[in-house]
Write a protein that binds this DNA or RNA. Structure first.
Length: 731
DNA sequence: CCCGGAAGTA
DNA sequence: TACTTCCGGG
């Protein structure tokens, strides 16, 4: 069967397709929507509003018209367009915000991650639930993926054109000419074109093409959140101090960690230029990749460019990446899941950001024109965001190739990355308290299951985002996972990696862990496991979960155990993408720690990583479940399901879940209804694949692979990832 | 308005 | 694959 493994982490095709074949690919609706959203000009017709990633189509007809123009489908109307949008539900690109007319919400997890794996949404808000992007009203702010600016900077070579540009470039393109083709041209392009805020950028059309390979690893930009950003960024790029870093800097100051009330996205205001916002280095999709999902489309080998090479990561890159993540984890309590992928790597200790700030330049700002708009919008929200300026001129330039680092940390062996011994100690992650937010939200939500919600306290119908959430998301699940401690010695990475030595990661357990777990467990059962998961898709658990689910849960006796597994398919789907990698044994434990463990445990067990200590054992949910698992059992399945559903629906945002339909609706449902107990079964086939043994990871190979491949791969990746070009020419 | 199946197109 | 078109149903 497909082992996802082999593909490894391919993203769902849809995610990058556009990029992959820029020319040919037609623009996708979501790209288009984003494009419109990012232009203030169109605020009258469509704008960010409300929660993270939520946008409202203020003028459906106009949007449809524009879309139709873009696609040369004069017959387009909102009804059709909306149908297309509805298809995104399954893809999880969007959700409908119920109750609000013409309001939809992006699931950035999927989108962003997909496109920019590196971005850590998590870091950001840690909290950002999923969609975080844009700040709602703020014009400048939005999240422009690609800051318009600098794109060039980075990629002179081009591969990436996109980083900076993904959208921006796209937009630009569209605007420029591409759109025009439609005869009627409804002005679309023109409109779009002009709009761009980004005036600053003109960017010369990018010379994109080229593929110059030169870049080597260089230039990726990552999208990072402000929080991480600096450091991370720097790391990624190389020296902090260097120019490269500077561009983006946004955050100086303490960065806005706290999101403004309005903007969910902590980051949102990316600094334009330098901020770089969000781009992710193409490196490894794997890591973050989480995303995807279930799509029916499995990752076909075909698609990804990378396939051939798989992903090869340059060790360096990986390292950086890891560092970044680590850092984020460390700092923000993100889940470590990322690391799974690279068992061998030792993660350097994250440094605390404190210092980094220095580097940042400030954003500057300003450009937003937003002010004017007022009339149209609904009023309420608006921006308060800091203006961003595009600093066009000073581009940060980055060294694309020039990272100082590149050589600086040469990696001897790919595997060896972790030269520095990670300090074990520090690595515990205790998460800092999450900024807040999500939990509250969750709480609310939990309390009120969707529909009923009204009653609950929210009082006002919308809890709307801002208010409550601050920034963080719920770490709940994540946390737990994160917090877990584990000691791992990667004993064997199955892979060949360790040739030299494997780095081991050791995590020290934090005392509270257990408690957490327990709590978690409890919670889960009670509350809603799903929710958590969902929320975090990004970070966490899913990976683990996915695979595990099926297995260990089983009906353990009635107890459904942690997850209910209502939708097996879902899991599967996700598995496909997310779980793909068999967790490296060694690591697993690490991650596993909490609930993770449970998941992990399946894999691990096979592998036999170190067993958690006895004490811990208690923690693992699975065990608990099996053991006594009182938790779950208490709740009737139906209830759980019900809950789940309700939540599901209610959480539009949350995303996932709905999969079942797509895949095999019928079966699933039945199962759900009937047995909760066993639905998993099937899955396991998948999951287990063959045994637990994880399929070989793609990256492995790559990693192992010498640089050569990597360069190529990276280029491809970059390209793919980076650019979303939307060309439309074809009408 | 919104949903989603079904069929068709490229 | 990603819609586009049509459409019945809520």
């Amino acid at each position: 069967m497909k082992t996802p493994g082999d593909t490894g982490f391919a993203f769902p095709e849809w995610a990058y397709k556009p990029e992959s074949s820029p020319g040919s690919r037609q623009i996708q609706l979501w790209h288009f929507i984003l494009e419109l959203l990012r232009k203030e000009e169109y605020h009258d017709v469509i704008a960010w509003q409300g929660d993270y990633g939520e946008f409202v189509i203020k003028d459906p007809d106009e949007v449809a018209r524009l879309w139709g123009a873009r696609k040369c489908k004069p017959q387009m109307n909102y009804d059709k367009l909306s149908r297309a949008l509805r298809y995104y539900y399954n893809k999880r690109i969007l959700h409908k915000t119920k109750g609000k007319r013409f309001t939809y919400k992006f699931n950035f997890n999927k989108l962003v991650l997909v496109n920019y794996p590196f971005i850590d949404m998590g870091s950001t808000g840690g909290s950002v639930p999923q969609s975080a992007p844009p700040v709602p009203t703020g014009a400048g702010t939005h999240f422009r993926f690609p800051p318009s600016t600098p794109s060039e900077v980075l990629s002179p070579n081009e591969d990436l054109r996109s980083p900076g540009g993904m959208f921006s470039s796209v937009g630009r393109r569209m605007a420029r000419g591409s759109v025009s083709d439609c005869s009627d041209g409804t002005s679309v392009n023109s409109e779009i074109e002009e709009g761009n805020t980004g005036a600053g950028e003109e960017r010369g059309e990018r010379a994109v093409s080229g593929g110059g390979g030169a870049g080597g690893g260089a230039g990726y930009r990552s999208i990072i959140h402000p929080r991480l950003s600096h450091e991370t960024l720097f790391r990624m790029y190389g020296g902090p101090g260097n120019p490269a870093g500077h561009p983006g800097s946004r955050g100086h100051t303490g960065h806005r960690i706290h999101p403004e009330p309005l903007s969910p996205f902590p980051v949102s205001p990316l600094p334009g230029p330098g901020g770089a916002s969000l781009l992710a280095p193409p490196l490894s999709p794997a890591l973050s990749m989480t995303p995807t999902s279930h799509l029916p489309y499995t990752p076909s080998p075909t698609l990804s460019p990378m396939l051939g090479s798989h992903f090869s990561f340059n060790p360096e890159d990986m390292k950086r990446y890891l560092q970044a993540h680590t850092q984020s984890v460390y700092n923000y309590g993100l889940s470590p899941r990322a690391f799974l992928q690279y068992p061998n790597i030792v993660i350097p200790q994250p440094h605390r950001p404190a210092a980094d700030k220095a580097g940042l330049t400030a954003e500057r700002g300003a450009a937003e024109r937003a002010t004017t708009a007022g009339g149209g919008e609904r009023g309420g929200d608006r921006h308060h965001h800091p203006p961003l300026a595009h600093s066009t001129h000073h581009h940060p330039h980055l060294p694309h190739s020039a990272h100082p680092h590149s050589h600086s940390h040469p990696i001897h062996h790919p595997l060896h990355l972790g030269e520095e011994p990670p300090h074990m100690s520090p690595f515990k992650f205790k998460l800092q308290p999450p900024p807040l937010g999500r939990k509250q939200r969750e709480g609310q939500s939990q309390s009120k299951p969707r529909q009923s919600s009204l009653s609950s306290g929210s009082g006002s119908g919308s809890m709307s985002s801002t208010s409550g959430l601050g920034s963080s998301l719920s770490f709940g699940s994540d946390l737990s996972s994160a917090s877990g401690s584990g000691l791992i010695s990667a004993s064997s990475s199955t892979q060949s990696l360790n040739s030299a030595g494997l780095p081991k990661i050791k995590v020290e357990p934090i005392s509270d862990i257990e408690s957490e777990e327990e709590v978690e467990v409890t919670d889960i059962s009670d509350e809603d496991p799903d929710e958590r998961d969902e929320e975090f898709e990004l970070f966490s658990p899913r990976h683990f979960r996915a695979s595990n689910h099926h297995h260990h849960h089983h009906h353990v006796n009635g107890t459904a155990t942690t997850q209910h597994q209502p939708h097996p398919d879902e899991d599967l789907d996700e598995d496909v993408f997310k779980a793909p990698a068999p967790p490296p044994p060694g690591l697993m434990p690490f991650f596993t720690s909490q609930h993770t463990q449970s998941n992990a445990h399946r894999g691990l067990s096979a592998l036999k990583s170190e067993p958690p200590e006895p004490a811990e054992s208690s923690t693992s949910p699975s065990q608990m479940a099996s053991a006594g698992a009182p938790q779950t059992k208490c709740i009737p399945l139906k209830l759980r399901f019900k809950r789940r559903w309700s939540e599901d629906q209610r959480m539009e945002a949350s995303q996932e879940e709905s999969d079942d339909k797509k895949v095999r609706p019928e079966e699933e449902r039945e199962r759900q209804r009937q047995s909760n107990g066993q639905m998993e079964m099937e899955e396991d086939g998948t999951g287990s694949g063959e045994g637990d043994s994880p399929p070989p990871l793609a990256y492995e190979g790559s990693i192992a692979t010498p640089l050569a491949s990597h360069s190529r791969a990276s280029a491809e990746l970059h390209r793919a990832t980076a650019q979303l070009s939307l060309e439309n020419k074809d009408c």
